[in-house]
Design a protein around this nucleic acid. Structure first.
Length: 305
DNA sequence: CTGTAATCCTGCGAGC
DNA sequence: TGCTCGCAGGATTACA
């Protein structure tokens, strides 16, 4: 599932293959993406030269030269693949939008599950303003005070907070779990239950996990490939994600799974306790609260009847 | 405010 | 073996 490291890898792979090239034609499938490419955009981008490639959160931005300066925006959804291939190379299935380049190659957007989007925006500055209003900061070098305030100011659990793109942009289900493990924090902990030091630890863990994952060219569970078609390598370094019942890499306790924020979540019940390590949870008499973490729905197991 | 669930969609594995 | 069904989940939206 493409999250920040996968998107960053695609952008880095595609940059040398796209910058300076001219889009000479567009074709598309009849199937609708979540964010569908409109045929009216074909004429807008044909003849445009690619100025640069960027990433913002999980979004890919392709800057096009011209006045006014426009931009292509792509989201890979869950199964999106954005690659450059020879126009002569056989076409895979689920190909939705293809941009022909002047050099005999083409930029292909493939997305079996069609959760992705490919859109054109004529006004680059307006789009940036809009995106900055909807997305939180990039997770590198986040202001400590900002992050503490965002986390401690809510009763929402850490999993929900990390998945919330308006707080931090780019984290998805895999790296949220991995960051919580690295920070030794239970994903079900309420944001406001964290100490300032724990907030700082979580912020650092998010940054560290994403940095390592980028170095590993992202994670491939099933569909993900980089801009040149290569699979990722970070999936072999998962500590908890998808490792239910496997021994914790730190203490050998079996990894647990539960559902938080509607997402499968994985954690070590020993390394990531419900309450701050070394602190007894203080409960006031008049405000009795049993466990500091609400009991999650344990993974549903089908029972007869 | 917070959480949950449905929605979009295809592929795959579990279970019968 | 072949079918159904749950699940995977990013973002959005509706509802409890």
């Amino acid at each position: 599932m493409p999250e920040l490291p996968e998107v960053e890898t695609v952008v880095r792979d595609l940059r040398p293959l796209l910058v300076g090239r001219t889009i000479v034609g567009v074709r598309q499938s009849k199937q609708k993406l979540r964010g569908p490419w409109k045929p009216a955009w074909n004429a807008e981008v044909t003849g445009a030269r690619v100025e640069g490639l960027r990433r913002r959160g999980k979004w890919i931005l392709i800057d096009l030269a011209g006045a006014p300066r426009s931009v292509l925006r792509v989201h890979l959804g869950m199964t999106g693949q954005f690659t450059v291939a020879s126009a002569a190379a056989p076409e895979p299935d689920h190909l939705h939008v293809v941009f022909a380049l002047g050099d005999g190659n083409e930029l292909r957007f493939r997305d079996p599950r069609r959760f992705g989007s490919a859109e054109f925006f004529r006004d680059r500055a307006a789009l940036e303003t809009e995106m900055n209003a909807e997305l939180g900061p990039e997770p590198f070098g986040i202001d400590a005070e900002y992050f503490r305030t965002a986390v401690q100011g809510t009763a929402r659990n850490l999993k929900a907070l990390l998945l919330d793109q308006t707080i931090v942009a780019g984290v998805g289900n895999i790296y949220a779990d991995e960051a919580c493990f690295r920070a030794k924090l239970h994903p079900g902990r309420a944001g406001k239950s964290l100490t300032p030091a724990e907030c700082d630890g979580l912020r650092g863990a998010v940054e560290a996990v994403l940095t390592r994952a980028i170095e590993g060219r992202g994670s491939t569970i099933r569909d993900y490939v980089g801009g040149s078609g290569l699979r990722g390598g970070f999936q072999t370094e998962f500590a908890v994600y998808g490792r239910t019942d496997d021994p914790c890499p730190a203490c050998r306790t079996p990894i647990a799974s539960a559902r938080y924020a509607g997402r499968a979540s994985h954690f070590c019940p020993s390394c990531q306790p419900d309450s701050p390590q070394g602190h007894k949870v203080r409960t006031k008499k008049h405000k009795e609260s049993g466990s500091p973490v609400p009991r999650p729905d344990v993974t549903r197991r089908k029972t007869a009847g």
